[in-house]
Design a protein around this nucleic acid. Structure first.
Length: 312
RNA sequence: CGCGGAGUAGAGCAGCCUGGUAGCUCGUCGGGCUCAUAACCCGGAGGCCGUGUGGUUCAAAUCCCACCUCCGCAA
């Protein structure tokens, strides 16, 4: 079974590793071109490329798959099946249909919900109870292909998108191996998606970062953990941005006015629109490193009852 | 040359402008109080103040210069 693997970010590394460990014949890896990253705009290769090169697999980084450029790669590598995990580009119809078993995608949600770019983060942001991964036979639509296998998991109360990402990447890797196994035994039963139940998980951006303390504590908590590795929830303190990384809910502090602050042992409690507090445990102040909220408070004491709303 | 912040005790910060004894909150160690404590009281240890074989000065954490590292914004 010859496999062409397509993927770009960290999420796609684990499934690729799984293929290699399970002795699948990965005849090539397609990933996005290197991109400038960071303050110095250093050209950085995608995580998948690094992994592939370590394994001695040939890497392709086409700017586009259109105009037959994708087909060229297929002709050269001649795979039986193409595996796509968070590649980041649309695959044209002729590309999808070229190889024997077409293109199979591992998607980070329980389809048909959360089709699109940011399914994992959207699940957390929405406060969903379950997340999962779906193996799907790709068609020309966006995550609309027939479902092959699904794996579900419960989202932890305080789990961040980043943590869920890691877990789902492992699950996706296992699911991929299972899918290929069944594919070879001809045991897969494609199932159509119910389009009426579908939802779309659009990309995140920085405009989602500012916290509105008038929202409920649960909403704020979901925002903080949902935006965790990026773009990160933030509020303004003393005219400077304060990033909020981790939080949890409690009902042991009574209630307070939206936006007001109280220092507690675990960190910084901020009361929200429904009068309940969210305890913030990890922050980063502008120009400073990420640190425990309790540490931040030692050097930047905020008086109890201070309102963050007037800073926004 | 994209804009900007920061490197001082184990942690987080102040001190720098207006050079002259190393300071705060917390942790840690010892003691006390308490039925008890993440509470309170007393005491102690712990710093080549990012690097320089730099400059100015009677004297540099502090002023000037160069370099290193970390970070926020923008992309």
């Amino acid at each position: 079974m010859k496999i062409l693997y397509m993927g770009t970010p960290d999420f796609a590394v684990k499934p690729l590793k799984a293929l290699i460990e399970n002795k699948y014949d990965v005849c090539g890896v397609v990933t996005q071109p290197d991109k400038p990253v960071g303050r110095k705009a250093i050209l950085t290769p995608p995580p998948v490329k690094i992994e592939a090169e370590n394994a001695g697999i040939k890497v392709y980084q086409p700017q586009t798959l259109k105009n037959g450029e994708g087909i060229e790669i297929l002709k050269e590598t001649n795979p039986d099946v193409v595996i796509v995990v968070a590649y980041g580009k649309i695959l044209p119809k002729d590309f999808l249909e070229f190889s024997k078993y077409g293109c199979i995608n591992i998607h980070g949600s329980i389809l048909p919900k959360y089709r699109g770019a940011a399914p994992i983060q959207r699940c957390v942001l929405d406060g969903e109870e379950y997340a999962g991964v779906t193996a799907m036979q790709m068609d020309v639509g966006l995550d609309t292909g027939d479902m092959l296998l699904v794996e579900k998991t419960k989202i932890g109360e305080n789990e961040t998108s980043g943590e869920l990402f890691d877990r789902l990447a492992d699950m996706g890797a296992q699911l991929l191996i299972k899918t290929l196994d069944k594919l070879q035994k001809d045991e897969l039963k494609p199932e159509k998606q119910n389009d009426e139940e579908s939802t779309y998980a659009s990309m995140l951006d920085k405009s989602m970062s500012p916290v509105d303390w008038n929202n409920s504590a649960q909403q704020v908590h979901n925002q903080i953990r949902g935006l965790d590795p990026w773009p990160v929830a933030l509020t303004v303190y003393n005219g400077k941005t304060l990033k909020l990384f981790r939080s949890y809910l409690t009902d042991s502090l009574g209630s307070g006015e939206a936006g007001t602050v109280k220092a507690v042992k675990e960190g910084l409690a901020v009361f929200c629109g429904d009068g309940k507090p969210v305890i913030i445990t990890e922050v980063q102040y502008e120009g400073k490193k990420r640190m425990k909220a309790a540490d931040f408070l030692r050097g930047n004491p905020i008086p109890d009852g201070y309102s963050l709303l007037k800073d926004c």
